[in-house]
Amino acid sequence: MRKLIAAILVAGAAVPTGAAFAADMPFYPPVIDVPDVDYGYTGSFYLRGSGAVNLAWAKEVTHPSVVPPSFATDGYGYGYSFGTGFGYETGTGLRFDVTVDYLSNEGVQATIPASAAPVLSPGVHKLLLRSTVALANAYYDFGIGGDGYGAGGGMFGYVGAGAGVAFNNFTTTSPAGAPSDIWSTNTSFAAAAMAGVGYDFGAVVADLGYRGLYINQLSNPGTTVPYNIDNVLVHEVRGTVRYRFN
């Protein structure tokens, strides 16, 4: 009993001493180190290469020296294109690049009536087009099925638009089928709209999509039989591979 009473007295004496000691201690709130959240967004430069098959169309061909001067086109042209480019992606879905493509197309045609003789040979005239198209482009990439942006982001879709110039080289075939010996050249405004889907593997990104390419005019003033073709529209199914190098 005496031992129990002694223990209680010792504990009671220690309480004020401990409280006084605690009061003298400075208070430091705990520091919690929260790491920055990494969303996987990163900007990077890239090189790209593209290849496409195409179909071209224009409403009509105009010959100022013939009455009536305009003849409706009645056939599409088919061909291909390939090109390269350099760009930058911001990591937030937006990316920008400049591209240069070589485009070949043959077969856009107009049937010239007998009334155009002797200036034009009656029959089917077909266009042969070779163009170098330089564009500045902007795109927006968006994840598909919960996939995000950045390296290894998985499936994505994209939309884009571009503007620039087309350096055109073109001629026509006669109704007999022989190409003209005279190739004409001109420089024209060009624009494009793009949409498609792709897959982000990390350092390499591949996509497949549609590009609608607009060439304002093909014209050859000053030749023996001048003509112009306005508002040429080229539909492309286009595959592209991009390589990130930083």
Rank of each mutant, 00 (worst) to 15 (best):
M1D: 13
R2E: 15
A7I: 05
A11G: 05
A11R: 03
G12R: 02
F21T: 10
P26V: 14
Y28W: 06
P29L: 14
P30V: 11
I32Q: 12
I32K: 14
V34M: 08
P35G: 09
Y39G: 11
Y39M: 10
Y41Q: 09
Y46P: 03
R48Y: 05
G51P: 04
V53K: 01
V53M: 15
K59E: 13
E60R: 14
T62F: 08
P64S: 13
S70K: 11
S70M: 03
F71D: 13
F71T: 08
A72M: 06
T84N: 05
G87M: 09
E89H: 03
E89Q: 15
L94N: 05
D97C: 07
Y102I: 00
E106K: 13
G107P: 02
V108G: 07
Q109W: 01
Q109V: 00
I112V: 15
P118M: 06
P118K: 08
L120V: 07
L120T: 04
V124N: 14
H125W: 15
K126M: 07
L128E: 12
F142R: 01
I144M: 08
G146W: 11
G150I: 09
A151G: 08
G153K: 03
M155H: 02
G157H: 04
G160S: 12
A161D: 06
G164C: 11
V165I: 14
V165S: 09
A166Y: 03
S174K: 12
P179C: 05
P179D: 09
S180Q: 12
S180F: 04
I182D: 15
I182V: 15
W183S: 11
T187W: 06
F189M: 07
A191S: 11
A193M: 06
V197Q: 01
V197R: 02
A203N: 08
A206F: 04
D207E: 13
G209V: 03
G209I: 02
L213M: 12
L213V: 02
Y214P: 01
I215R: 02
P221G: 06
P221M: 10
V225H: 02
I229F: 00
D230F: 00
T240Y: 00
